[in-house]
């Protein structure tokens, strides 16, 4: 188990390097360091000296990938790419273009993101699985048909509709909750309520249908027939046997997402004006702040890989037959 974990973590390193290389080249294929400097200093009337100075201050005065003038190992290490990305592995994200520390920004913005994402995830999971199990219970009846039709209808509606419609109805018509914004502490509940609700609504169709297919696949298996033959009630069969055995496919889809909850949701956060990581990323992309975008991408892919490892570990918990080597 330990050996497996170590191997997985070692395997993650080349992937993270690849991710960095990709974002790096995406950024610098079209933008030169000069452009970035000009953008930061104001588009017009910038002296070449000022550009040079900015580049020196922010460490962009080196060759991009390969330094032909340097000696030995520093041929590779004395470049923008190496200087900027090697420190990421120690969670040192440097500072954004306006001089703030990215790591600290991320820390303060994590909480609002989590406050939205975690309840959405948990409540959503509960609702989707219950709904799917109910549909499975009434399978091949009119009720099931109705449920599935409802799911298809719900998943055909654009997510934007839920957000715009929800904001309109709950905040403007009924004045339940403020339209957007965020506050710390207990006050946050009224700000969080609507985004969470809309987040759950937004994927109820697709998710419930997906869980229903999983359950339906399980229900055709032999052990279910045995359980029924023993005289167990259908409810008991579903909740005790089918649910447990459907855990593996469920976990495959679910556990990967857990670490990514930290990243927040780009769409919801920018709509509801929540100062989380999602809106931070969007702002950074719009301002072409390379350090922040790269830090977020790095964080995101690291969390994704962590999610994959977590998935494997969770298999061993629900299914004792699975051994990690």
């Amino acid at each position: 188990m330990i050996a497996y974990l170590i191997r997985r973590i070692l395997y993650a390193i080349p992937i993270l390097v690849g991710v960095n290389l990709l974002t790096f080249s995406l950024f610098f294929v079209v933008n030169t360091a000069d452009d970035m400097a000009r953008m930061q200093l104001g588009m017009k009337r910038v002296t070449p000296e000022a550009i040079e100075k900015w580049k020196q201050q922010h460490g962009y005065d080196k060759p991009l990938l390969f330094n032909a003038h340097a000696e030995g190992i520093s041929k590779i290490s004395d470049t923008i790419f190496f200087q900027k990305s090697a420190r990421m592995f120690a969670f040192d994200f440097g500072s954004s273009n306006d001089g703030r520390n990215v790591a600290r920004e991320i820390q303060t913005r994590m909480m609002p993101s989590l406050a939205i994402a975690l309840p959405t995830f948990l409540i959503g999971l509960l609702i989707y699985i219950t709904f799917a199990l109910l549909m499975t219970l009434f399978r091949a009846t009119a009720l099931d048909m109705l449920g599935v039709s409802l799911c298809v209808l719900l998943m055909s509606i654009s997510g934007l509709f839920y957000i715009i419609g929800g904001q309109f109805v709950a905040s403007k018509l009924w004045h339940w909750v403020p339209i957007s914004g965020y506050a710390g502490g207990l006050d946050s509940i009224k700000f969080v309520l609507l985004p969470v609700l809309i987040g759950v609504m937004g994927s109820v169709g697709a998710s419930s249908r997906w869980y229903r297919t999983i359950f339906l696949e399980e229900i055709g298996k032999d052990y279910v027939r045995t359980a029924r033959a023993k005289g167990l009630s259908e409810l008991r069969v579903l909740f005790r046997h089918v649910l447990k055995n459907a855990m593996i496919p469920i976990l495959t889809g679910v556990v990967v997402v857990i670490p990514l909850l930290f990243m927040g949701s780009l769409l919801t956060e920018s709509f509801f004006g929540i100062p989380g990581l999602g809106s931070y990323t969007i702002d950074a992309i719009n301002a072409q702040d390379f350090s922040v975008v790269r830090a977020m991408v790095f964080l995101g892919s690291m969390l994704y890989i962590a999610g994959l490892v977590l998935t494997d570990i969770s298999y061993t918990i629900v299914d004792p037959r699975v051994r990690l080597q």
Partner: peptide
């Protein structure tokens, strides 16, 4: 590598570039 980058981020970055 490609799928470990959050897709919206990747698309947004590429489109802005």
């Amino acid at each position: 590598v490609l799928s470990s980058i959050p897709s919206v981020l990747l698309i947004a970055a590429a489109v802005l570039m």
